[in-house]
């Protein structure tokens, strides 16, 4: 890449990561406690009565989905709130007046989103050891799904961070999109538990492919066509990157 501002890019990324560590209770501890409660209630207490699904304990079945849901929310919240606050308090101007390309700026935000998403996801996985030992069957796929889905939700966070005109706007996607689509995307149940017409609807939910892909990577159970999942992920990363770059280049809501 021509004239890549490596030190500038590294500095901006480091600053973004530093920002979420500054409020660690909100950004890391809270999702870990929330996930711990989910694991305890749905995995351990309710799960004992449900028994086995596809030959694994219920807690092992729901863990990949819980991990993925928390990872998506963390990545999304990182970039959306960071960009929105920087717009709101105007210190985005500090970055805009620096010799950083728009891709370097977007890259810095996204890496911070991925780091936060992975820290939350890995934390959820470690906490689950209090109740069960869930192996990771396909470590390469685990890393692929964790990072690529983090990138997607970090980019979505940037879109919302650009679009939002109030703090309330930031809460809309996690509450009305990520959580419901996760719950309806096979987080707590197998596709086989649903009637046929509901299965068709679930297959239209992109989060189903992310959760199912992670479930395959961790416990080897798969109910979706993995090729569709891969295409979806690659397509979303490409389209969202282009869209965010085009909006930054235009100065949409970041330039006066």
């Amino acid at each position: 890449m021509q004239n890549f501002n490596l030190i500038g890019f590294y500095t901006f990324t480091r600053q973004e990561i530093h920002r979420f560590f500054r409020v660690g209770i909100q950004t890391l501890i809270t999702p870990w406690i929330s996930a711990l409660l989910y694991i305890l209630i749905f995995g351990e207490i309710v799960g004992r009565r449900i028994g086995m699904i596809h030959g694994v304990a219920y807690i092992d079945f729901v863990l990949p989905g819980l991990l993925m849901m928390n990872l998506m929310q963390a990545s999304f919240s990182q970039t959306s709130s960071s960009l929105y606050f920087q717009r709101f308090l105007r210190h985005i101007e500090e970055v805009l007046t620096a010799p950083l390309s728009y891709l370097e700026i977007i890259g810095g935000y996204v890496i911070a989103g991925v780091v936060r998403g992975l820290m939350v996801g890995i934390g959820v996985y470690v906490l689950a050891f209090l109740f069960t030992i869930t192996n990771i069957n396909h470590i390469g796929l685990f890393v692929f799904y964790a990072i690529s889905v983090s990138i997607i939700f970090s980019l979505l966070g940037l879109l919302v961070g650009l679009w939002a005109n109030s703090f309330e706007h930031l809460a809309i996607p996690p509450t009305f999109v990520i959580m419901p689509l996760s719950f309806l995307g096979g987080l707590f149940n197998s596709l086989a538990m649903l009637p046929e017409n509901m299965r068709k609807v679930v297959r239209l939910n992109p989060l189903f492919y992310f959760i199912d892909g992670m479930r395959y990577a961790m416990i080897g159970i798969q109910e979706s066509d993995r090729r569709i999942g891969f295409l979806l992920i690659i397509g979303l990363v490409g389209v969202l990157t282009w869209l965010v770059w085009a909006l930054f280049k235009r100065g949409y809501k970041v330039k006066i």
Partner: peptide
């Protein structure tokens, strides 16, 4: 108008901006 991260320290503000401009 003050367009700066109000929670950052004075030294950090200078350090970060220097970094943006490629200073070691």
């Amino acid at each position: 108008e003050f367009n700066v991260d109000a929670f950052a320290t004075v030294r950090d503000i200078l350090d970060f901006v220097g970094g943006y401009f490629g200073m070691r």
